[in-house]
Simulated scan of single mutants.
Amino acid sequence: MVPVRPENAYQARLLRVLRDGPRSRVELCDAVGLSRSKLTAEVDRLVELGLVESAGPAASRGGRRSSLLRVAGTVRFAGLVVGPDRLTAAVTDGELNVLAELHEPTDVRLGPEPVVARAVELVGKLRADLGLTHLNGIGVGLPGPVAFPQGSPVAPGALPGWHGFPVRDTLGAELECPTLVDNDANVMALGEQHAGIGRAFDDFLYVKLGTAIGCGLVLRGAPHRGATSGAGDIAHLGLADDGPGCACGEAGCLEAYCGDSGLVGAALDAARSGRSPALAERLAGSGTLTMADVARAAAAGDPAVQAVARDAARRLGRVLVGLVSFVNPAIVIIGGAPDGLGHALLAEIRAVVYRRSAPLTTGTMPIVLSDLGERAAVVGAARLISEQVFASD
């Protein structure tokens, strides 16, 4: 089944407004700038196409009550997020509310073919569980640089062996629906724009922490990817020539200090040196440390681990000074921080950015933690493909 698309720019604009929730015809006229007769013609055609339906009567404003309209209940999008160690798949309605979601451990080092094949199976299971005959589209987030026009990763450090693999075309052929692929920081920024703190802002930065670090930019209400899809690729900005080794082969990268592996490495040093007796005991018992161990130690008040977190946050803060001075966003949103570490990192980041930035740039700019958590990724992936589907050719 070929997914139906709007036939003109007016219909596309109406669908994007309705993606944010039901509206009355009066509200749609105001939002889209159409006359009542023109709106009626375009809405009637969207109903015929199966993209819009009635949602009951609107609140009375005097006189005859208007009817509410919404995206049709048959519209379904999928969001797929590939992490270094986990696959997440979800199906949403036309307003991007998550209807069903699956998580599964994975090992991206196996290569793209088996991981993508398993992703197809997960989406297929969701479709079967929900009784769906088709999807209107699927959006995908990958943890690394992505050539957006081609839908394929480019030298992704977190995805060894994936360089140039046609993720978009492979998934699109298997699932028989429109498919778009972007890096996960951009996808999470779109999730924040749709359902998170970013809803209130046209210009913001979304900084993604975790195994792979990235930055999504939303400028003038749209994602900014740059000339070759490389905007926001901050993971390997060099902070020190003699710093810790990075997965990219260089030393002193931002990710080597502030990514999960960098934080765990610094915590291992604290354990082995005796500066953190608690982590030393944990290391002796298990033979290794995880990010969860580090977060728990920080939350418990371990001074050595808290010092590690503050050092990483200061380095990230200095990078953000440059970013906010150059871009001048209305807000900075930070996601992906482990439980137990987020507020400690945030406090140090704020201290550095506000102290070292010009008042004109940061005087009214909040720096906050995401309140969507992992949900930002799948919602953002669905938002990504909805932008294409809810657009006229």
Rank of each mutant, 00 (worst) to 15 (best):
G124F: 01
I331C: 05
V43K: 00
A292T: 12
P105H: 07
K125G: 07
E95T: 11
A222Q: 10
A212N: 11
F201S: 07
A78E: 09
A382R: 04
D302T: 02
R118E: 15
A195D: 12
A313K: 00
G340M: 05
A100L: 13
G336Y: 02
R86H: 05
D260C: 08
C258A: 15
L239M: 14
L99Y: 05
L96P: 11
G83F: 00
L49W: 01
R13Q: 10
L320E: 09
T290E: 06
V17H: 05
R355T: 04
N136K: 07
L323Y: 12
G62E: 12
G151R: 00
I385K: 05
A158S: 12
P6C: 08
L341S: 12
L126R: 09
L205G: 07
R225L: 11
V332S: 03
G210Y: 01
S67D: 10
R45S: 09
G151L: 03
G50F: 10
R36F: 15
A307E: 11
S386C: 05
A147N: 13
R13E: 09
N136T: 02
G245I: 00
V98E: 05
P84D: 02
W162K: 02
A304F: 07
M188W: 08
A344L: 15
V71A: 04
L69R: 13
V146F: 01
R16V: 04
L316D: 04
G317A: 05
V324N: 05
H134M: 08
C258P: 00
A78P: 13
A391I: 14
V319F: 04
D339Q: 09
R225V: 03
D260P: 06
T179D: 04
A309H: 04
D242N: 06
C215Q: 11
G243C: 01
A256M: 08
T228H: 14
V4P: 12
L217N: 04
G373C: 08
G139Y: 02
V181K: 00
A41D: 06
